[in-house]
Amino acid sequence: MKDSPNSETLPQETRIGRTALRVNDRDEVTEFYRTVVGLGVLDESETRSVLGVADTPLLVLEADPDAAERRRSGAGLYHTAFRVPSRAALGDALARIRENSRLTGASDHWVSEALYLTDPEGNGIEIYRDLPREEWPRSDDDSVRIGTEPLALDTIEAAGTGAARTPPGTDIGHIHLEVTSLDAFRDFYVETLEFDVQTTVPAAAFVSAGGYHHHIGANTWQQRTAPVDGRGLSWFEVIIPEREALTAVRSRLEERGIPVTETDGDLVVHDPDEIEIRIRVDSA
Score class of each variant (00 low, 15 high):
residue 70 R to A: 06
residue 92 D to T: 08
residue 54 A to G: 09
residue 48 R to G: 00
residue 131 L to D: 01
residue 131 L to R: 12
residue 131 L to H: 10
residue 66 D to F: 14
residue 50 V to E: 00
residue 70 R to V: 05
residue 104 T to R: 10
residue 119 D to M: 05
residue 88 A to T: 10
residue 72 R to F: 13
residue 69 E to G: 15
residue 65 P to K: 14
residue 124 G to F: 02
residue 108 D to G: 13
residue 70 R to W: 06
residue 84 V to H: 09
residue 48 R to T: 05
residue 124 G to Q: 00
residue 57 P to T: 01
residue 117 L to K: 02
residue 123 N to T: 04
residue 114 A to P: 14
residue 130 D to P: 11
residue 104 T to G: 07
residue 97 I to Q: 05
residue 76 G to Y: 04
residue 46 E to R: 10
residue 124 G to M: 00
residue 62 E to F: 06
residue 107 S to A: 15
residue 50 V to I: 11
residue 59 L to C: 11
residue 129 R to W: 14
residue 50 V to Y: 04
residue 58 L to M: 08
residue 63 A to F: 07
residue 64 D to T: 12
residue 68 A to V: 14
residue 85 P to E: 02
residue 67 A to K: 08
residue 68 A to P: 11
residue 82 F to R: 03
residue 88 A to E: 12
residue 116 Y to R: 07
residue 95 A to R: 12
residue 105 G to Q: 03
residue 124 G to A: 04
residue 114 A to M: 14
residue 68 A to E: 14
residue 75 A to T: 01
residue 119 D to E: 05
residue 71 R to Y: 12
residue 77 L to E: 03
residue 122 G to L: 11
residue 117 L to M: 12
residue 129 R to L: 09
residue 61 L to R: 00
residue 110 W to H: 06
residue 128 Y to S: 08
residue 93 A to K: 00
residue 69 E to C: 13
residue 98 R to A: 12
residue 126 E to R: 02
residue 94 L to E: 09
residue 53 V to D: 02
residue 130 D to Y: 09
residue 90 L to F: 07
residue 59 L to E: 08
residue 117 L to C: 10
residue 129 R to A: 10
residue 46 E to S: 15
residue 75 A to N: 02
residue 95 A to F: 11
residue 48 R to M: 07
residue 98 R to F: 06
residue 115 L to P: 09
residue 70 R to C: 07
residue 121 E to I: 01
residue 80 T to P: 09
residue 117 L to R: 01
residue 118 T to R: 03
residue 109 H to M: 06
residue 71 R to S: 15
residue 101 S to P: 11
residue 111 V to T: 12
residue 104 T to E: 02
residue 83 R to K: 13
residue 86 S to F: 13
residue 117 L to D: 09
residue 103 L to W: 12
residue 61 L to K: 01
residue 45 S to L: 09
residue 68 A to K: 13
residue 44 E to N: 11
residue 76 G to F: 02
residue 112 S to N: 10
residue 94 L to G: 03
residue 101 S to R: 02
